[in-house]
Design a binder for these strands. Structure first.
Length: 222
DNA sequence: ACCCAGGGTCATA
DNA sequence: TATGACCATGGG
């Protein structure tokens, strides 16, 4: 007898199987924001190398990045891929920080105002903005990523084609405004998402087996 | 030699 | 609104 999946129920399973993830990795709120840009469609291991380059050059600050030569900035970012584009995006984010008086001042804004101004920055889209809101500004925001869509589609809770805001509200309504919960939930999804509902899933070994309708099927029928 | 990774922008229909 | 091209490195 399987229990029906739910958004809070999936969290309990993920947490029970994997424990706390201690996210977001980074030594400062600014480093978290830099990581959020650099990790766009990019493996985190590559992002770490780029951030290490910035640290070694003592360039991990808004001022250093804005005044650095574009060519040199791109060179530091090289290991993270898309380095020309990310150099532009990183500069845009740092300019925004400086113009707005820094993280401390921005932290006074209500969440929806903070999101609006973040989304106005070139290179910051919905997911990156929410990464920054949740992990750098500690706002109760649920981040929707490709793993979230795939896993919850597989569980039969969503169609997977809903737009970003629709899914974000769905999750936030189901969870309530809980920073700790949003933080841990998204971290669990990203860190363990690769092993869940991937092609030819081993449903018998998946930690969501007990709540996954697809797990009862013989093969990959999802 | 593929395939993919903690997306976003821009052009086109 | 909704696809598609493009960006680019590193690990499996």
């Amino acid at each position: 007898m399987k229990s029906r999946p739910s958004i809070p129920g999936v969290y309990r399973k993920l947490f029970a199987a994997n424990g706390r993830q201690h996210w977001w990795p980074g030594d400062s709120d600014f480093e978290i924001m830099v990581g959020a840009i650099l990790t766009q469609n990019t493996a985190w291991a590559n992002v770490e190398k780029a951030i290490a380059n910035l640290k070694k050059a003592r360039a991990l600050s808004p001022r250093s990045i804005v005044k650095a030569h574009p060519k040199r900035l791109a060179a530091w970012l090289k290991p993270s891929g898309y380095f020309n584009i990310k150099a532009v995006r990183l500069r845009a984010m740092c300019r925004w920080l400086l113009e707005r008086g820094g993280v401390r001042k921005l932290a006074k804004l209500p969440t929806h105002d903070l999101r609006r101004t973040l989304l106005a920055v070139h290179g910051i889209g919905a997911e990156t903005a929410d990464d920054i809101l949740l992990y750098a500004f500690r706002r109760p925001v649920f981040v929707i990523d490709a793993y979230t869509r795939r896993i919850f589609h597989r569980l039969g809770l969503i169609r997977g084609t809903e737009d970003y805001e629709t899914l974000r509200r769905l999750f936030e309504n189901a969870l309530g405004p809980d920073v700790r919960l949003c933080n841990e939930y998204h971290a669990l999804i990203v860190v363990h998402g690769k092993d869940i509902c991937k092609k030819r899933p081993r449903c018998d070994r998946c930690c969501l087996n007990a709540v996954c309708p697809s797990a009862a099927l013989p093969r990959d029928a999802g």
